[in-house]
Write a protein that binds this DNA or RNA. Structure first.
Lengths: 231, 231
DNA sequence: TCAAAAGTGTTCAATTTACACCCATGG
DNA sequence: CCATGGGTGTAAATTGAACACTTTTGA
């Protein structure tokens, strides 16, 4: 019997986000070959034999960022399957969003020269390859929405972090200001959210701040209140 | 150049849920041919030429339920791509969860005879074809999680519904009891959640209840508090 | 008249918010 | 000593939970 249904190849695209200097930034790559040669795109790659698509996403994330074991927050955004979305043929893409710590170690090898961090607003100004603008929009919305109900904000921080560094993640991603005192109480009271390491640091200036690491919890029992964006 | 990357076919599987007589039920089909002949499975089908996978899911939903235009809540659950998940070959599946109103019109034509509604607990007791048990678990968790942050509960109701019918959706899906008075206030005060139609009904017994329809809002500004399930 | 469900009022507890204030460091 | 952020105290405001109570129907 002849095959009636399309055969497609699968790719995983990974929207890699970080928080730097009070800005939400995304890692993009400049394409070195057609199609869309010279344009910015979300890093991604084909699913290889023996892999599932999540493993492809993990592999891509590692190739781009040199993050070793610590793939914590890699969340599915959607699946993009419009016919004609890729001029090379029938290519369907699963999109993930990853949240990585501040000084995001740009990978040394490969086409690292072609990768760059861009603030979200800038990235969304110009055109992107394929349907990647839409994917980026969806990914950012997903990330924003996840912050208040999961512990994913921690993924933006170093392994050891202070409460105010965590607060700045929320402030940056949501574009709001949060009360430092109230935030401190809220976060430290939710069991399993953050754990004291015992250490302290003055890297943020002022009085030494306690250091924390991620707790065991993935989903918050009560959500972190997200203020309305005024004006 | 020879192709190194797997070619796959895409299917959309749709977990169709409804609330009936205080139970959360799922629509399953008994397979009429190998593989897994005779076993229960989540309805689904191949993506056809010219379609994207979301359209495939919509089509499947319509074929199974005879719901016409009103495809409101069809949410992506995940993408299932393990090699070997389907003995016929490389078949990747996007899974969606759909929430449909109570008397769920079983489609007359086609293989409708093979479809059946099962309470979630029963459906998860026995084996299901492929990796459909996992998909069903993921879909139910997704639906539970969505209730408190979106207006998706309305999708379980008729076009016109009473507040207590809506309350029973929450109670059933979450497996809790909610205070009728408090729930009524909460829901009617959130702007854009429900809209009065002006009518009333006594179909639930007792004093006539006002009729409502869905408002314009998709996501709730503040979540509907979800009580802990007490042993 | 009774039962059942709708919807409102009322009270108390819990949570959130705003902001004052002291603490511990670097410069 | 001063500036800077860390963290706690506290009171007001808001929200949620519990439940009594009135309303309006069908039986």
């Amino acid at each position: 019997m002849r095959e009636m249904f399309p055969l497609v190849q699968l790719t995983a695209d990974v929207v890699i986000l970080t928080v730097r200097e009070e800005r939400l930034e995304v890692l993009l790559v400049r394409r070195g070959k057609p199609p869309f040669e010279g344009m910015l795109a979300i890093p991604g790659g084909y699913m290889e034999p023996g892999e599932n698509l999540w493993q492809t996403a993990v592999r891509e994330l590692r190739e781009e960022t040199a993050l070793d074991g610590m793939v914590q927050h890699l969340e599915l955004v959607g699946i993009y399957t419009d016919p004609g979305r890729d001029p090379r043929g029938q290519i369907a893409s699963g999109a993930w969003v990853a949240m990585v710590p501040d000084p995001p170690v740009a990978k040394a090898g490969g086409d690292a020269a072609a990768t760059q961090w861009l603030p979200i607003e800038e990235a969304l100004e110009g055109p992107l390859a394929f349907d990647h603008k839409r994917i980026l929009q969806d990914a950012v919305e997903k990330a924003r929405r996840m912050l208040d109900q999961s512990t994913s904000a921690i993924a933006f921080c170093q392994e050891e972090f202070t409460i105010s560094e965590l607060r700045r993640v929320y402030e940056t991603v949501w574009g709001v200001k949060l009360d430092p005192g109230n935030f401190h109480r809220k976060v430290t009271r939710i069991e399993g959210f953050v754990e004291r390491t015992g250490g302290a640091t003055t890297r943020d200036g002022g009085r030494p701040a306690g250091l924390y690491r991620a707790g065991a919890r993935k989903w918050l029992p009560s959500s972190i209140p997200r203020p309305e964006v005024s004006a």
